[in-house]
């Protein structure tokens, strides 16, 4: 039990910089009653050790690497500095739970989608990339891959076109519509427009193209 508690606190020192700082400065006086004095002492020493900070950096780098690799368009949209800021905010709520990239990056997408006020285009781009990851999520053999739908408020070509060329979109035409993604027999993600008369009416109400700025 004691070793279990020790490992839990050590893991927390790695994943929670603020906790590490509190332990290092002595602000966090109680590390848990199940720890022996020797274990408490080890954890306090470790909290101030530059090697623990490097360990934490390595854990963070592994997590960030997954995000950079799997969300190239979101990265373009947000820029590296803001993406790292968002990732750190996500990590404060979500300690690492899996070795596998897709699961954690999908959770990060959900975090971004669930937080308001990130600019007019961000959520559409995140939802687009999340849908592609969801289709690639590893499932038990024989389990069907459900199609994914993404709702857009702007013309996807105006958003995704510039991003695929490595630059964030500056403006996009307003367009209400849904795209559906499915996995082809050869493992490619295929996108198609979903016909929706109500959304078509909304689009018809705008006789001229309305441009939203980034």
């Amino acid at each position: 039990m004691s070793l279990q508690a020790f490992q839990s606190v050590l893991a927390r020192l790695v994943t929670e910089p603020s906790f590490r700082d509190r332990v290092r400065t002595g602000e966090e006086a109680d590390l848990g009653t199940s720890l022996t004095p020797r274990e408490q002492q080890r954890l306090r020493v470790a909290a101030g050790d530059p090697g623990l900070r490097v360990t934490a950096t390595l854990v963070g780098s592994f997590r960030l690497g997954k995000i950079l690799q799997l969300l190239p368009l979101t990265r373009q949209m947000l820029g590296d500095a803001r993406l790292v800021q968002e990732a750190r905010a996500f990590w404060r709520e979500s300690p690492p739970r899996t070795f596998y990239s897709l699961e954690e990056v999908i959770q990060f997408c959900d975090y971004l989608l669930g937080t308001a006020g990130r600019g007019p285009f961000v959520k559409e781009v995140v939802a687009f990339e999340r849908a592609q990851l969801e289709l690639r999520r590893v499932r038990p053999e024989g389990e069907a891959v459900p199609p994914q739908e993404v709702f857009f408020r702007h013309d996807p070509r105006d958003l995704l076109g510039p991003l695929s060329e490595g630059r964030p979109p500056r403006q996009a035409r307003r367009w209400f519509g849904r795209l559906r993604a499915t996995m082809s027999a050869t493992g490619e993600v295929e996108w198609a427009r979903v016909e929706d008369p109500r959304l078509a009416e909304l689009n018809a109400d705008d006789p001229e193209d309305v441009l939203d700025e980034a």
Binding site: Q4, S8, A11, R97
Partner: peptide, 12 residues
């Protein structure tokens, strides 16, 4: 490791 009341942590 056992997380602090929030499941298991995998430090990788």
């Amino acid at each position: 490791a056992q997380g602090e009341g929030q499941g298991e942590v995998n430090l990788n």
